[in-house]
Amino acid sequence: MSAWAVAGQGTTHNRARRRLKRAGLHVFLIVLAFIFMWPLLYALYTSLRPYGEIVANPTGPFSLPATLNLDNYFSVWNAQNMLGFYWNTAVITIPAVILTLWISSMLAFTISKFSWRFNLLVLMIFTAGNLLPPQVIIVPLRLVYLHLPLPAPLSDNGLMYDQFTGLILIHTTFQTGFCTFVLSNYMKTLSKELIEAAQIDGAGIFTIYRRVVLPLCTPAIAALATLLSVWIYNDFFWALLLFKSGDKRPITAALNNLSGAFFTNPTQLAAVSVMAAVPTIVLYLILQRFFVTGLTLGATKS
């Protein structure tokens, strides 16, 4: 405001125009936000209505409500082992995120802080792997999983197929490329002097990695952890293709359980979709700050 006034343009006419512009901007943003929120709000709305009422109404799902209650949530919760599916998701997501960050931070450290013959090539390979659509490798991957033996504590059928371990590994594999790329860019911004100082103090490579570099990378790692959690949580593809057992599915793939042979109750499906979306939304609200940092990581080099 004051900047405008100082510049000598603070006439009432201009101010009114600015106000109008601002109002226009806000209307635009509100409309846009509404469009973005629409699917979620609509799912929420549908999930609160009884199916019979939607059918009885000539305008169907677009009609105004006569009843709004949580019956769909209760019936789904009672009919499906929802807690079990949430647990499956946790069993897959948490180790996958930790493993990915651990491997990619070590890789990024090696690539960015040491000059060796192939470090650019290795970085390129990891980045290129990131560009590969996962669907491309599904047939060979499935065969590999069916033939690769895995000993007992990691697998209950002696194979990679139909195992949490297998799913964790494939997530780790696919996410490592992106994380390595982001972390190595981030580590390049750390000043060389810090590491040299640590070396002079007699720190070995592992000490430098653990005591110097990792703490400095906390913002980047936190951002990546947020992103990874959401991505892996939302996975539907691998869980559907690499699992045979219906009760091992994570929550996203378990949504399919509600599609019946001949009949699907859309209100219940909406209820369970909302339930499946809640953890990601909560995670986002808590870690919003990291989320935004995460999206711009590597976008600028200081």
Binding site: R142, G246, D247, N256
Partner: peptide, 15 residues
């Protein structure tokens, strides 16, 4: 091992 009807059908060959 219960798998929903549609997925079961889609994946029968793989299964």
């Amino acid at each position: 091992n219960t798998v929903d009807h549609n997925t079961f059908q889609d994946q029968i060959n793989n299964y």
